[in-house]
Structures are given as C-alpha cells and as structure tokens.
C-alpha cells in the first residue's frame, strides 16, 4: 500500500509539474530579457485549444502539437506588438490579453464546434504518446515514477536543458541576457533591443504553447474552459525564485508540482476539496513573499557591505 502510494504520488508530481515547468521556462526566458511574463496563462490557453482543434482536424498529434507551439508564439508576438510597437503598458497589455484569451478560446471553441466549455464530445483530438523507458521501467518504485510519463514530461526536461544552453552559451542568448541586464549597454554595441524582445516573447510563446498542448493533449485529452487555471502565474513565480535560470526554474516548478500533487491526493480523502485546491496558490504567495524578502534583504545588505 505504502509503496503504491509513493509511486503514484511521485508519478503525479512529475505529471503535474510538467505544465508548470513549461510555464516557468516561458517566464524564465522573458525574465532573462528583463521582461515580466504574466501572459504565459494566455499562451498556454491558446496552445491547449489550438492543439486540440488541429490534431482533431488533421488526425495527427504531431501537427496539433506544432500548431499549439505556433499559437503560443503568436500570442507572444501580440504582446510584443502591443508593448513595443504600440508602447502600451506591459502589465495592462498582459492583463488585457489574458482577459481576451480566456473569453477568446471559449468563443473560438464555440464558433467551430458549438460547444461552450469542453471539446471532448465535438472534437476527436489526439493525445501525445506516453513513453516507457526500457531500462528504467524495470527498476522498482523509481522506474514506475520515471517511466511511462507523457512524452512532454521528458520534453520539459529537455526543454530546460536546451533553453539553458541557449541562454548561457549561444550568441543570441548572450544578447538576450545583455538586454535584460542593461538595455543601454546592449544598444551601445549594436544589439537591437526590440528584436531581442521579439525573440524572447516568441520563445516564451512557444514554450507556453507546449505547456498548453500538454494540458489538453496529455494531462487531459480535451480542452476545457479556463483549464490553465493560474498555472502561468505559478510558473512566473517559479522562475522569479531563481532569477530566470532555466534549470532552476524547472526545479522550482517541481516544488509547486508537489503542492499540486498533495492537493490532488487529499482530494481523494474526506478533506474539503475546495480548501485542498487552494493550496498551490497559497504556496505561491508564501514563496513569492519569502523570496522577495530574501532578495530585497540581500540587495540592501550588499549596499551596506560596500559602504
């Protein structure tokens, strides 16, 4: 019994962490460019919906997945247009986009299928495959946790590593970090700040889109309204815990995944579901506050130490 509980819990942690990791990576690339990504929420929502629609239409999970990425990217580009080209306030623009996406996805679903909250009946969408890892699946407990996850769960790890290499080792990654740290310095050596922002928003969009695809083509197998439910914000929180480092953001997302899994597990007990569902959000606030305290404390200490 106990072993089974541990395996199923561990399995759930990884499963539930997956969308959070993508959201965190989406926020991380923006954070590295000095941007505050509150719109991972929208990117995921569009990714989830478009993934379902396209995979249903083409009978190909892969094409659906690619479409989800594209949908996320377009969302990111829209934010870029509004804030860089239109000089709209970044916060206000993202709030607006989140608002429009929440309604827009429902509306698009309806326009195509006549359904208003769930695509399950109307669209025969495909799920992304689960993967058994030959060697590992044989190991007791650990194998059961690590193997048999959705391909995107492994994809999340790969994405974090690739993003980390991209940010820290590639030329473009250098430029993104330069802009994030000091746009004037970057500009003074000929790096175009708007271009870097465009790139950051697009990559963030792609990552968000993948996270969304996992939600509707892995975690569930259909789109339901507002299914992202604040995961974008939780990812943002995870990323800011580690200053936007991709690997760190992934690990922090795991913490929130644990909170999610605990809350899922408790739902099976007699505990009131609503109070249990609250947990990940409370954890987010507490972590965010603690983190800001630490960060701020460090900054003031630094100034003091220098003097």
């Amino acid at each position: 019994m106990n072993v089974r509980l541990i395996t199923s819990f561990g399995f759930a942690v990884l499963r539930l962490s997956t969308p959070l990791v993508f959201a965190a990576l989406s926020a991380a690339i923006c954070e590295k460019a000095g941007l505050f990504n509150m719109a991972a929420e929208s990117m995921m929502l569009w990714g989830a919906l478009i993934g379902v629609i396209v995979s249903g239409a083409t009978h190909s999970a892969l094409i659906g997945f690619l479409a989800a990425m594209a949908a996320g990217a377009v969302t990111g580009m829209l934010i870029w247009v509004a804030t860089v080209k239109g000089k709209a306030d970044l916060m206000l623009a993202q709030i607006a986009i989140n608002l429009a996406s929440s309604g827009g996805t429902i509306f698009l679903l309806f326009a195509l299928t006549g359904e208003k909250s769930n695509s399950a009946v109307a669209i025969k969408s495909l799920a992304l495959p689960k993967i058994n890892i030959p060697g590992i699946s044989a190991i007791p407990v650990v194998g059961k946790i690590l193997s048999g996850q959705n391909i995107l769960t492994y994809g999340a790890v790969v994405a974090a590593i690739v993003l980390s290499i991209f940010v820290f080792k590639s030329k473009t990654g250098h430029h993104i970090r330069a802009v994030g740290e000091n746009p004037h310095a970057a500009e003074s050596v000929g790096i175009s700040v708007p271009k870097v922002y465009f790139l950051a928003w697009t990559i963030a969009g792609v990552l968000g889109g993948i996270g969304g695809a996992f939600m509707s083509m892995g975690y569930l197998t259909s789109f339901t309204k507002d299914m992202v439910a604040g995961r974008g914000y939780i990812g943002l929180c995870a990323s800011s815990m580690v200053g936007g480092s991709p690997i760190g953001a992934m690990l922090c997302a795991l913490i929130f995944g644990v909170a999610d899994a605990v809350s899922n597990q408790l739902q099976l007990t007699n505990a009131p579901a609503d109070l249990v569902l609250m947990m990940p959000y409370i954890v987010t606030i507490v972590v965010l506050v603690l983190l800001s305290v630490v960060k701020h404390g460090r900054a003031t200490r630094k100034v003091k130490a220098k003097s």
Binding site: K87, A88, L92, I97, A100, S101, G103, I106
Partner: peptide
C-alpha cells in the same frame, strides 16, 4: 442564438490594449 457571451471579453481586451497603447 446560442453564441456564448464570453466573446465580450475579446472586445474588452482590445479596448484595454488600444486605450493603453500610447502609439495608437
């Protein structure tokens, strides 16, 4: 007509962005 009222939030989003965008 059965069209979901959520499409209003699209209008809202557009209005906020356009009003907020200095360059508009």
């Amino acid at each position: 007509t059965d069209i979901p009222p959520e499409f209003v939030s699209i209008i809202q989003g557009i209005i906020i962005v356009l009003v907020a965008a200095e360059m508009f």
